[in-house]
């Protein structure tokens, strides 16, 4: 089984649930930025939760199928079409050999996930099929898709009918306005003044155009004021510099104190900018669905609340698994 890429879309990549274990050598997790959406898409078509699918960003691709395939599209509201005929999202449908799967314009969210029964069968590299484009690793030839690429699809593992749907209550693709990202203050939080700490939460930030799998940049808040210091040896003279250290996934760095960057699944693993805290694990998937210019508020939480949110999210995914078992 295979399909051919007629038009690649904006930044379409092969992703599974990621490649843990190599961050200490600078190779990040990668994998679907909205993990819940990819899991739902996979389970809908009868794949294992961690099969490889396509992550579609802002603008979908045009794909010509060489064999009949059962597919599902979840995540952002990016309406699929088969030979021009509209198809439902969060629902399985069939694409027949020779037919073209394309997408209407984006209605909501930022990243949609396409699962194909059997999963995309690119080689497993360091335990994962995910694309890490910065390192030219994994996925399809280590890069985003291009016109003319032919991607192999595995053999379907289970027979699942077309028209199988995930109940609306279990679909997550809406975001509040402004969107709320909960974070645990910490790391180098003490480097900014109390007034700046308060201001960071009081300000409404907007997603900047520089928002990708490596990190999301935010604009529009007030510059952060630093606590004066003698620069430690090796850190550099800018008040936002630190001796180069590891960056947690979800950590919020603010180079020069002006524009916060939240690192995501293709994170640079370390560097010399201070971080003021970390977005909690439960809210990482939400970032995947933020469009440029979307207003965002950062809200501080304690560890206990972060763990409760994590448990709630796990329960949510368990419900999806139960519904599609």
């Amino acid at each position: 089984m295979a399909f051919e890429v007629k038009k690649p879309g904006l930044a379409t990549t092969v992703q599974d649930l990621g490649r843990p274990g190599y961050y200490h050598l600078g190779i990040p997790l990668s994998g679907a930025m909205d993990q819940e959406a990819l899991i739902a898409a996979n389970l809908l078509v009868g794949n294992d939760a961690g099969a490889a699918g396509l992550e579609l960003v802002f603008m979908g691709p045009e794909l010509v199928f060489r064999d009949d395939a059962l597919v599902a599209v979840t995540g952002a509201e990016l309406p699929p079409k088969v030979d021009g005929a509209p198809q439902p999202t969060w629902t399985t449908f069939t694409v027949k050999a020779g037919q073209t799967l394309s997408f209407d314009y984006l209605r909501k969210g930022a990243r949609a996930y396409l699962a194909i029964a059997g999963g995309i069968d690119v080689p497993v590299v360091l335990g994962s099929r995910s694309t890490y484009a910065l390192g030219a690793l994994g996925g399809f030839q280590g890069r985003k898709l291009a016109a003319g690429d032919v991607l192999p699809v595995g053999a379907p593992q289970r027979q699942v009918p077309a028209g199988r749907s995930l109940h609306v209550s279990l679909r997550r693709n809406g975001l509040e306005d402004p969107a709320v990202l909960r974070m645990l203050p910490g790391l180098y939080w003490h480097r900014i003044t109390e007034a700046a700490q308060g201001g960071f939460f009081a300000d409404t930030w907007k997603v900047a155009p520089e928002a990708d799998r490596i990190g999301y940049r935010f604009k529009g808040g007030n510059p952060l004021e630093f606590v004066p210091r003698e620069p430690p040896f090796g850190a550099g003279s800018d008040p936002s510099n630190i001796v180069d250290a590891c960056y947690p996934y979800g950590s919020i760095q603010v180079p020069g104190g002006t524009e916060p960057i939240v690192l995501h699944r293709d994170a640079v693993s370390g560097g010399g900018y201070f971080m003021l805290g970390t977005v909690i694990s439960a809210d990482m998937d939400l970032i995947a669905q933020l469009q440029p210019h979307k207003p965002v508020k950062f809200v501080p939480v304690e560890m206990e609340e972060a763990l409760e949110a994590r448990a709630e999210r796990k329960a949510e995914i368990d419900k999806i698994k139960a519904a599609l078992a």
């Binding site: 430690p232 947690p248 996934y249 950590s251 972060a306």
Partner: peptide, 19 residues
């Protein structure tokens, strides 16, 4: 020691660089 969200612990051995 500092938590980096609910999945990381960050440990700064020293603020300045040395062997």
């Amino acid at each position: 020691y500092s938590y980096g969200g609910d999945e990381h612990i960050f440990v700064e051995v020293d603020e300045e660089m040395s062997l």
